[in-house]
């Protein structure tokens, strides 16, 4: 669970996660607030970046840490409380059956409560972008709810520190020929999560970062 300045929102999703799961890793991405202190009140591992690097870097840190601790299945989950804990089992089911290597959550197969129209259009454009550049037939992109098998997580190497990591992960799923599927998930937008979310202009910046990163890699 990557978290940056989520001190006020973190307790609710963490409490729900701790009811069901034992191995939870919170990556505090150099927060300026009490994110680490809030996380430390729960029985979770807290990995803290000394400086803010971005969500992509935080996710890679979490994957590295979980792999080093011996995790067999890995799930990424946003810290702002917009994801539903019960969706994790839906994500893990195809992995446990050994059908795929990566499971992607899709709000368009499931539901997106309170999603503004402009956000919906931006994500749809992102899906189109992914279909063109990563050649993956998916219905959602930039959804923080994903699950990986251990072997798949070991192959993923996120180099895009900021928000372009979501496109990079999909690109690597295609490049490493990982088996993938989408499952329906529920995303509930709140005022706080919308305020922290990406603007439409940021989506253009993310696309540019992704393409430049690809060229200059």
């Amino acid at each position: 669970m990557p978290a940056y300045n989520e001190g006020s929102a973190l307790a609710t999703p963490l409490a729900a996660l701790c009811q069901r799961y034992r191995h939870i890793v919170v990556i505090d991405d150099g927060s300026l607030d009490d994110t680490s202190a809030v996380a430390a009140r729960f029985p979770v591992c807290v990995v803290r970046h000394a400086i803010n690097l971005g969500q992509g870097a935080a996710l890679q840190t979490g994957l590295d840490f979980a792999l080093a601790e011996g995790a067999a299945l890995l799930v990424t989950f946003d810290a702002d409380g917009q994801h539903t804990v019960t969706d994790i089992e839906t994500l893990l089911a195809p992995l446990r059956r050994g059908e795929v290597d990566v499971v992607l959550g899709s709000r368009f197969l499931g539901s997106a409560v309170g999603m503004p129209l402009h956000r919906k259009l931006t994500v749809k454009l992102g899906v189109l972008f992914t279909r063109i550049f990563s050649r993956l037939k998916i219905t959602d992109t930039h959804n923080g709810l994903r699950a990986f098998s251990r072997a798949a997580a070991a192959k993923i190497a996120i180099e895009q520190n900021r928000m372009a990591h979501a496109s990079e992960i999909l690109d690597q799923v295609h490049r490493h020929r990982l088996r993938y599927c989408e499952v329906p998930v529920r995303i509930e937008y709140s005022r706080a999560s919308l305020a922290k979310g990406q603007s439409s202009w940021a989506a253009v910046k993310i696309a540019c970062q992704f393409l430049l990163g690809r060229i200059l890699r």
């Binding site: 990556i27 430390a40 029985p43 979770v44 591992c45 807290v46 990995v47 803290r48 970046h49 000394a50 400086i51 690097l53 870097a57 890679q60 840190t61 590295d64 840490f65 080093a68 520190n161």
Partner: peptide
């Protein structure tokens, strides 16, 4: 910088 920060963070991780 990312690699360095990540290495430090993992070394100093707090477990339950």
């Amino acid at each position: 910088i990312t690699v360095l920060t990540r290495r430090m963070a993992i070394l100093e991780a707090r477990r339950p």
